[in-house]
């Protein structure tokens, strides 16, 4: 990849609930020699809760404008941040009237459309690329993985960077690190229920249960993810789900950057493996 420096939009859960994703993202990019410069004064993208598109555009025009000033593309580890940043970029590029409307709200929303917003998964596989990554692999991570993509990686079409029905960017990384992808295609892109966690826990738990049990039935040692809300739902809430639904799942859930980091020879504590809720000890035992 030609860019050696990217503007990093960590997203709101990066210092708390998804700290292991933040740690492993930083560690992996450092190892790959690409500087992640945290964006000065970034703001929340509005997540799934800002439902008015104009509000989403305004919030993200501010973020895009901040990175544009430094002439850097934005990279984010969160699928929802990615979706909101990317759809705002697209809408503002295509609609001069909308750009004017943003500037009218405040000068800080004055975005010209000269940079891109990307998801870390996209940067790793399509930006840096498999050739460059393969030259840096130091260890074999001999795990069976259920690669779980969730919602905003393969859809909607306007911002997607992978296939909507059978995405494979994570599959490729798992193969690269010496892991095995289990049969999981039918669940890869099914929503984890995260957005309904606080308002309809019953539905959210049922959605998450399907994902977790499919991974278990497919013989996976762990699920790999690329979104902090999926992490919250599938990992942090897993014990609550087990209690409520009276089932045992015990499925480790890790971020793809954590697995990749192990293969790059990075220390597991630096990758936040002691932060995942469901124990990851067995995974660490499979690094050769």
């Amino acid at each position: 990849m030609s860019e050696k420096k990217l503007a990093y939009h960590p997203g709101c859960p990066s210092a708390t609930t998804a700290i292991e994703q933040d740690m492993s993202t930083k560690a992996v990019f450092e190892k790959l020699g690409i500087e992640l410069a945290e964006m000065e004064d970034w703001n929340c993208c509005g997540a799934a809760e800002a439902e008015d598109p104009i509000l989403v555009y305004a919030l993200n025009a501010r973020n895009l404008a901040i990175a544009e000033k430094d002439g850097l593309d934005i990279v984010t580890p969160c699928s929802i941040c990615y979706y909101n940043l990317a759809r705002t970029d697209k809408a503002l590029r295509e609609d001069e009237g909308l750009r004017a409307k943003m500037s009218e709200i405040d000068d800080s929303l004055n975005y010209k459309g000269t940079i891109k917003a990307r998801h870390i998964l996209d940067v790793l596989v399509n930006g840096i690329g498999m050739d460059e990554l393969s030259g840096k692999i130091e260890k074999k991570v001999n795990v069976k993985v259920a690669p779980y993509y969730g919602c905003y990686i393969g859809r909607p079409g306007e911002t997607a960077f992978d296939d909507p029905d059978d995405p494979d960017l994570m599959d490729k990384l798992i193969e690269l690190i010496g892991g095995e992808n289990v049969q999981f295609s039918s669940m890869k892109t099914k929503c984890c229920g995260g957005p309904l966690m606080m308002t309809r826990e019953d539905i959210a738990f049922e959605m998450a249960r399907k994902v977790l049990e499919s991974a278990k039935n497919a013989g996976a040692d762990c699920i790999a993810l690329a979104c902090p809300l999926c992490g919250m739902m599938l990992d942090a809430k897993q014990p609550d789900m087990e209690k409520k639904l009276k089932i045992t799942i015990e499925m480790p859930v890790v971020y793809i950057t954590q697995l990749l980091g192990l293969a790059l020879g990075i220390d597991s504590n630096k990758l936040g493996f002691n932060k995942n809720i469901v124990s990851t000890k067995e995974i660490l035992g499979k690094v050769i």
């Binding site: 919602c151 997607a160 929503c191 957005p195 309904l196 309809r200 539905i203």
Partner: peptide
């Protein structure tokens, strides 16, 4: 009306 998870499957298809 209030139970859509905004997963975008419908929009994509």
């Amino acid at each position: 009306l209030w139970i859509c998870a905004i997963c975008q499957t419908c929009t994509a298809r």
